[in-house]
Amino acid sequence: MDLYGDALNILKETSRTFYIPIIQLPLGLQEAVASAYLCLRAIDEIEDHSELDNLTKAKLLRTISLILQAGGDGFAVDAFYKGLNSHEHILPEVSLRIREWAILAPASIAPRIWDATAAMADRMAYWAETNWKIHTESDLDRYTFGVAGAVGLMLSDLWAWYDGTQTNRIHAIGFGRGLQAVNIIRNHSEDMARGVDFFPEAWSAEDMHNYARRNLELADAYTSALPDGPALDFCQIPLTLAYGTLDALANGKDKLSRSDVIALIEQLTKMSR
Rank of each mutant, 00 (worst) to 15 (best):
L3C: 02
N9H: 06
I10Q: 10
T14M: 12
T14R: 13
Q24C: 12
L29W: 00
S35F: 03
C39F: 08
D44E: 14
D44G: 05
I46V: 15
L55T: 00
T56N: 05
L61Q: 07
S65W: 01
L68R: 06
Q69W: 07
D73I: 03
L84M: 05
E88I: 00
V94T: 10
L96Y: 00
A102R: 09
L104W: 00
S108R: 02
W114N: 02
W114Q: 05
A116K: 06
T130P: 01
W132V: 07
K133V: 15
S138H: 10
R142D: 15
R142V: 08
Y143S: 08
F145M: 09
V147G: 05
V151K: 01
G152C: 09
G152Y: 00
M154K: 09
D157G: 13
D157N: 12
L158Q: 01
W161Q: 11
Y162K: 03
G164S: 05
N168R: 08
G174A: 08
F175V: 08
L179C: 11
L179G: 07
Q180F: 02
V182F: 02
N187W: 09
E190V: 01
E190Y: 06
R194H: 15
G195F: 14
H209G: 12
N210K: 13
R214I: 15
R214H: 15
N215L: 10
T223Y: 11
S224W: 08
D228N: 04
I237L: 12
T240V: 11
T240P: 08
T245E: 08
L246R: 00
L249D: 05
K255H: 10
K255P: 02
K255A: 11
S257N: 09
D260T: 02
A263Y: 10
L268E: 13
L268N: 07
T269A: 12
M271N: 15
